[in-house]
């Protein structure tokens, strides 16, 4: 703020205040301060020397009141005021203007503060909304990523399951094929064995079980026993097939001869021990029955 009093103006204003009525020095100070709303607060160190000067010049005088000086304007002082009337009016206007300045200052100050606060809070609110949106977006993204990961996992799991199923199916298929192959081989082996047997049995007319009943040599056997025998043989084939199947080690070419030997041995034992028929063990198969040295004719040779 510009200086309130230009040169000589404060002196004029002091005279004006004392022209209203006699005043204590501190009262003059307070009036000045009130008039300028606290903005201009002259110190006693400014005012008292000026009052003393005015007194020296004979423009004011003072009385003692309870030990305090009460200043009073003199006729010379009034004369001075009158002679500077125009200047005094100008001063009054300036002082009023300075009050307006103060008011304007206060108002603008508050408005500026309030405006900047509004802007600041609006910005903060916008930032908060932005941060919230960002958070929400991130949360959404995270959720989406998680969902995608879960989906991907599910997809992989499904694929794995499918692959496993495919593999299992393939294995099953292979096993089936292998089984079919081995069954075929078994059938072929069986057919081979049958043919062999037929040959051994002289071939010809042995095909029909039903005819067996006609044979007197077999009169001790009824058809029921034959059927039981047949069932036994069939069950054995089934069991054998099952064992081979269950073993998992598929029947290879090296298994078949072993099997064939065992079966031949078994047949020999059956022949010896069950049917008591002596026959030469087939070829060079391990002869576990040395008591069967010579080949024997089929037991029920019709020609006998």
């Amino acid at each position: 703020m510009t200086p309130v009093f230009r040169h000589g103006r404060l002196r004029l204003y002091l005279l004006r205040l004392l022209d209203e009525e006699p005043r204590h020095g501190y009262e003059v100070i307070r009036l000045l301060r009130d008039r300028f709303m606290g903005v201009y607060a002259p110190s006693p160190g400014t005012i008292y020397p000026r009052l003393a000067r005015l007194e020296e010049e004979g423009l004011v005088t003072h009385d003692e009141d309870n030990g305090r000086k009460v200043y009073r304007i003199t006729e010379a002082g009034r004369e001075e005021l009158r002679s500077r009337g125009a200047e005094l009016n100008e001063l009054e206007e300036e002082l009023s203007a300075s009050v307006s300045d103060i008011v304007r200052e206060v108002r603008e100050d508050v408005r500026d503060t309030v405006r900047s606060l509004r802007e600041e809070l609006t910005r903060a609110a916008r930032e908060m909304r932005g941060a919230e949106r960002e958070q929400a977006r991130q949360a959404r993204d995270t959720a989406r990523e998680a969902a995608e990961a879960a989906r991907e996992q599910a997809r992989q799991t499904r694929e794995n399951a499918l692959a496993q199923a495919r593999q299992a199916r393939e294995q099953a298929r292979q096993a089936k094929e292998e089984a079919l192959r081995s069954a075929k081989r078994l059938r072929e082996d069986a057919a081979h064995l049958r043919d062999e047997t037929r040959e051994q049995w002289g071939g010809g007319n042995w095909g029909n079980w039903g005819d067996w009943g006609q044979w007197t040599g077999w009169s001790g056997h009824d058809l029921g026993a034959l059927r039981d025998l047949e069932r036994l043989a069939r069950d054995f084939v089934t069991d054998l097939r099952g064992v081979a199947w269950d073993s998992g080690t598929l029947l290879g070419s090296e298994v078949i001869p072993t099997l064939r030997d065992i079966l031949a041995d078994t047949l020999d034992r059956i022949r010896d021990e069950v049917f008591d028929i002596h026959r030469t063990p087939p070829s060079d198969g391990a002869a576990e029955h040395p008591e069967a040295p010579e080949p024997a004719e089929p037991p029920a040779s019709p020609g006998e």
Partner: peptide, 16 residues
């Protein structure tokens, strides 16, 4: 416009 401003607090010692 009306403006109401507070003058400085009165000095209690002044008794005014």
């Amino acid at each position: 416009t009306v403006a109401v401003l507070a003058a400085d607090d009165q000095e209690p010692s002044s008794g005014a």
